[in-house]
Design a protein around this nucleic acid. Sequence first.
DNA 1: AAAGCAATCAACCGCACGCAA
DNA 2: TTTGCGTGCGGTTGATTGCTT
Length: 301
Amino acid sequence: MGRPPCCEKEGVKKGPWTPEEDIVLVSYIQEHGPGNWRAVPTNTGLMRCSKSCRLRWTNYLRPGIKRGNFTDQEEKLIIHLQALLGNRWAAIATYLPERTDNDIKNYWNTHLKKKLKKLQCTAADFTQDGSTGTATSFFNDHHSLSKGQWERRLQTDIQNAKQALSEALSLENRKPEVPPFSRPPNAYTYASSTENISRLLESWMKSTPKSRSRTSSESTTESKTTATVEKAVMGSDHAPLASFRFDSNGSREMAGTAVAPLSFIETWLLEDLGNVENAGEGEEDDLADLPLSDVAHELFE
DNA sequence: AAAGCAATCAACCGCACGCAA
DNA sequence: TTTGCGTGCGGTTGATTGCTT
């Protein structure tokens, strides 16, 4: 009884993906579109679990993924949304379409948690001093409540967020543009995948043999890998577009790539954060001074 | 230069959910 | 209604990298 494993454990490769495997996966998805992941290892010959293939695609190879340092705005948005939604990383990631839930989760666990903890200590110090430091309000808002009150409030927050999200989505649905990730598979372009892999290969090749262990076959093929990727991904019936992002009112421009238009709630959050940012100095204190619940109640009631 | 430690992040694991038969 | 499958999600792990001593 019980569910069978998603794949046979024996003969399944684990660990980091090689560029060659990435090529195979991207080429396959380029042809068939994402989905039906169980069939991917069988049809591609990849010795990978279907889940592993899906994860590799969604977290790394998928078009439009931005990697690298989080901007101040992104950071604040994550903090804001985490306070509102809790550890619902997938939901949070919908407001940062260029970041994966995994990325956000990692960033939260490695950077933001510590940062907020530090802030919490600072806030406690402020409170003890009898001052009304800005960092206190957020934490007082949540921590002074009893557990039951806090949970009810959280439920309300979640409800509000859901409502806001559906409103935002309905607003976006009226626009001709459709977010890239909600497009049917055939509407995807894979230029960004090429860029992703090229970037990946570049960094991979830049690393010294000392810093990165690899097989001899990998090292002999690396010089031609980038070209192979380009060929594999670009040399197909799917004409690679320069960008799958859109440029319209409210969109952002990043590294020459137009970014999807801001949703209603995202705009609101960023505006709010912008105000906080401009309100004065002591950014870290201001960070924690986001009256989430109250604003949400006022805004969405 | 080398060893030890901490930080980071890609990837894995297991559970939950939705849907079709 | 039940069952099985495919997929999504969040927590956790472990390899790698960078920093400190």
